[in-house]
Each structure stands twice: as structure tokens, then as C-alpha cells.
Amino acid sequence: MNKRTFYEFFAGGGMARAGLGEEWECLFANDFDAKKADSYRANWGDEESLLVGDIAAVRTENLEGCADLAWASFPCQDLSLAGGGSGLAGTRSGTFWTFWNLIRLLRVEGRAPRSIVLENVCGTLTSNGGEDFRSIVSAFVGSGYRVGAMVIDAAHFVPQSRPRLFVVGIRNDLPIPSSLRAEGPNDEMHPQAMRQALGSLPSGTQEKLVWWSVNLPRGRNIDFADLLEAEPKGVSWHSREETRNLLNMMTERNLSKVREVELRTRELGTLEAGSLYRRTRNGIQRAEVRFDSVAGCLRTPSGGSSRQTVIVVDRGRVRSRLLSPREAARLMGLADTYILPANYNQAYHLMGDGVVAPVVSFIAKGILNSVLARGVLRATG
């Protein structure tokens, strides 16, 4: 069977590639970060298809054939709620337009990708009053695609709270099965901010919108504690004093969570694990903890974000340490065979900047495979 083909823009360590799996063939990958490119090569060994450098230097002649998919997890810094608010006019997130110019040029050459998936933070929906999101949707429609957006939380697949926006476009000449199209939005995948932004688009653009109908999995079979390394590599347990300092940084509400778990694990003789972030609230640094079997959203350790801390309560004994690089990779749905950078900060940054592989797989199996298979039947029938 011929493999489906894809381009991976803003590729990082190749997590979209990991999610697509062996049924897909990478024709081209690009990232400007040399350190991330090292990880890409270490895991995929793909020197020929990987171009390291600014996306502005990519030309259509670098893009082989007519790909079934172009995946782009473009930078989020200017779209994030914690960012500066520049949106698509910003230096980083504005690289979307550089990417899209390549799509336009491929269309002129008769090689527009059959499908396109964008991934970014949910702040995209409200950036500049929703205008940035409308601009993205309009770009799809103006280049010959029907388009639909979804918010999917990775917590359906891995024990990490990580809601992300996915915009899926299908070229106009490919039929979309009716089973994949809902009559309207649903609350889980189509939040109010998305509906408001889309509702103000011109009628001609709205006619090209798709409300994707896919069934998210229920009952995840793995919890945060299940992903923890018995002997963590790359990190050390905090001293008692360091752990005590973290507890002293908690509000009474957060401290009561720890006390409840202390009591429960002491009575039952069990172990429970939670995740903790340090945040600044009203000018005061606080430690905020959760014990709901789900880790907080992985973030890059830059721009003021702290690295995630693991807090383990074993039969009433409280211990703490940083999340290990392997644990971060597991939270992104990557197998333990995935090769991580030796440097802690590089490994953590690589994971925090990535896309959760099982969510990529879900979109591919739930939407892309079905649409692309029908496209082949139509072309050869």
C-alpha cells in the first residue's frame, strides 16, 4: 500500500510525525531551531527531507510532489494569552503568513496539499477580538479549502491538561463524508469564542465551513502517577527544606489539598502524585497543586513560566522534585524509545513546545484517512 505523504512545518522534534505513524511518509520538514533539528535527526534520521532555517527561506522547489497533508504547529507566542497581544502581526506567530504564502504558491503550481492542519493555543480564537482567527479561516477558504476548527484537550488521550486549537482544511475537490459533518457546533469542541468569530464571517466564507463530527475517547486508561519514573533520570529529589518552602508558598486552599492526600495515603497505605506550578498572583509567588490524576499543561521554561514540579505523597510522606524529561515526553504521548536531548532545559523546551502525538493520530484516523481515501477513489474511479 502506498503511504500517504506530508510536509511538517515548524517541526520541532517531529511530534506530528510521531503521531501520524509509519503509514505516512515525510516529504519535507522545516524548523529554524538547530537544537530541535538535532532531536529531529536523532529520532527520524532524515537528513534529506529536513531543512533547518527560517521558513522565509523555504521555496516551493524544496517541497516535493503534491502532499496529502501539510501540518503546521506555528509559533504561539504572539497569540498566547500570556503574550504581548501582537497576534498574527507579531514576529513569531506572524510566520503563519510566510507558511501560507507557500500554500498559495503551491496552488498556483497545481500542487496544493490535499489537506492542511494547523495547531496552536486557544488564545488564537480571541486574539485581536477574533480577527486573527477569522483571517486564518478566510485564508483557507480563499485558497480553495473547506475548513473547520476544533478545540481538543489532550487529557482525553494522556494525563495532561492541554487544550489546543486545531484547524483542519480539506481541498475543495475532495468529498467529505457526511458522517464527518455535523449540522452545527457542539459545546465540547466548538467554544463560544469560536462560534462568535465564525459567525461574523461573510456568508460566502461561512458556506465553506465544516463542523467536524468526531467522537472523542472517554475513560482514559492511564493517570499521571502511572507515567512517573521509579528512578527519575535527569532530576533529583528536593531536600526536606526545599519541599517545605514549596508548601509554605501555597494558599490555604492548595495546602488543604496536600493535607487531604497526606491523610488518605497514611490511612490506606498508598501513594498519590500531583503536579505543581509556581505562579505569581498579585505580585506574590504561589505554588499551585493539583491531585486529579492529570498534570498541568507543559510549558516552555521561558517567558516567565516555571517548570512543572512533581509532588508525591507516599503513606503521608510528602516529597517533591522537577518533572523529568522522560516523564514530560510521556505526557506528550511519546514512546520511551524517543531520543531526548541530554540537556534538561533543551529536553523540557522541546516537549513544552510540541504537539501531543496521540491527538495528531486521532485527527489523522478520525478525519484525514477517510477523506483522503475517498479522494483516491474519486480520482481513480
Rank of each mutant, 00 (worst) to 15 (best):
E188G: 07
E188Y: 06
H190R: 07
H190P: 03
H190Y: 05
P191F: 11
P191S: 11
A193P: 00
A193G: 05
M194F: 02
R195M: 06
R195L: 01
R195Q: 04
Q196E: 12
Q196A: 14
L198M: 06
G199S: 10
S200E: 11
S200F: 09
S200I: 10
P202H: 09
P202L: 10
G204Q: 13
T205S: 09
L209Y: 08
L209F: 02
L209D: 04
W212N: 00
V214N: 01
N215V: 12
L216W: 02
R218D: 09
R220W: 06
R220E: 01
R220H: 08
N221R: 15
N221V: 06
N221A: 07
I222G: 05
D226G: 03
A230P: 08
E231C: 15
E231W: 12
P232G: 13
P232V: 13
G234E: 05
V235P: 00
V235T: 04
S236G: 02
S236M: 12
W237Y: 15
H238P: 00
H238E: 08
S239T: 12
R240T: 03
R240D: 09
R240P: 00
T243C: 12
T243W: 07
T243D: 06
R244P: 03
R244E: 13
N245V: 15
N245M: 14
L246G: 09
L246D: 10
N248D: 14
N248P: 00
M249Q: 14
M249T: 09
T251C: 12
T251L: 13
R253D: 09
R253S: 14
N254I: 05
S256D: 04
V258L: 10
R259D: 08
R259P: 01
V261G: 03
V261N: 03
V261Q: 08
V261Y: 03
E262F: 04
L263N: 15
L263G: 12
L263D: 13
R264E: 08
R266W: 02
R266E: 00
L268Y: 14
G269R: 14
G269A: 08
T270R: 15
L271A: 11
S275Q: 03
Y277I: 06
Y277H: 09
R278N: 10
T280Y: 11
R281E: 08
R281G: 00
N282S: 12
G283V: 10
G283H: 06
I284E: 03
I284C: 10
R286T: 01
E288H: 07
R290Q: 06
F291G: 01
F291C: 06
D292K: 07
S293T: 10
V294I: 14
V294Q: 01
A295K: 02
A295E: 00
G296T: 10
C297P: 01
L298E: 01
L298W: 02
L298Q: 03
L298C: 06
R299K: 14
R299F: 14
R299W: 10
R299E: 07
T300H: 05
T300G: 13
T300S: 09
S302N: 15
S302D: 11
G304Q: 08
S305C: 09
S305A: 12
S305D: 09
R307N: 05
R307I: 04
Q308E: 14
Q308H: 00
T309N: 01
T309E: 07
V310G: 01
